[in-house]
Amino acid sequence: MKKARKKTVAANGGSLWPLRFTLNGKKVSAKVQPTQTLLDFLRIEMGLTGTKGACLEGECGSCYVLVDGRPMNSCLMLAPQAQDRTVTTIEGFAHNKKLDVIQQKFVECGAVQCGYCTPGLIVAAKALLTENPHPTREEFLVGMEGNICRCTGYNKILRACELAADEMGLKKK
């Protein structure tokens, strides 16, 4: 933390910290409990329940959000660590009911079963494809191996990501 921040007292006696950051394109300022995870903050305080918690120890990627464009396990981040950063959750992907290409391909390819891993996977794929628009198969595996899906067997997920890459490539041309 750069500056000492003003603290207020929370209901449970602990102190609340002010937090300012950009969430899905909008500036947000809030008061947070310094020990609250970013995951709980987003879900409980901000009501953005699209980001999921599953292992809560950084092993499954269900809780991925983009922080300054990089995929981060929000279960391992504390809410104050989002200070001055740009956070994008799955709710920030579709615009005016128009799905992001990756979302679209997940739907088309049958890569969604129970759907619990889906938001995290889409976030991981987005980060990967933004940084590297033409990943090799191996680069896909590196980008996606932090996500657990218990239902699909990953085949359709990989296919959805590869098709999304193709389509994003076409659009660029």
Binding site: R43, I44, E91, L99, Q103, V112
Partner: peptide
Amino acid sequence: KSAERLDAVEKATGETKYGQDLFDK
């Protein structure tokens, strides 16, 4: 026919409510 899952879009956008998504402070 391999029709798309009827609930796939809402799952892919994060709108679907699972048990833990029904909480409120």
